[in-house]
Amino acid sequence: MSVALANYIALSAVIFMIGAAGVVLRRNPLVMLMAIELMWNAANLAFVAYARASMNNAGHIFAFLVITVAAAEAAIGLAIVVIVFRRAEFVDVDEVSVLKG
């Protein structure tokens, strides 16, 4: 009844890829933010798994910090999404392209 560390890391890599794909493919800023949360969580899983493997709880601390930062980032990110899209017709990042060239 034991699980190889490699399995955890592989799982986290899969989540990371799914998250990256979400950022690139989705057009809804909220979903993009959620996809970014997935990427960060993938890193967290890797941290926790490696912490368990090396019995070093620095990984736990790191994951804890990441969660804290993610909370702050989500708050700011959502505030920005609100001010950008409050009066917009579409909630779609493709609509936000005044700056280019």
């Binding site: 890193a43 967290n44 890797a46 798994a49 090396s54 790191f62």
Partner: peptide, 12 residues
């Protein structure tokens, strides 16, 4: 996110 995952691997 990329950097964080890299840090996780470095930690690992």
């Amino acid at each position: 996110g990329f950097m964080l995952y890299g840090m996780a691997l470095l930690f690992g």
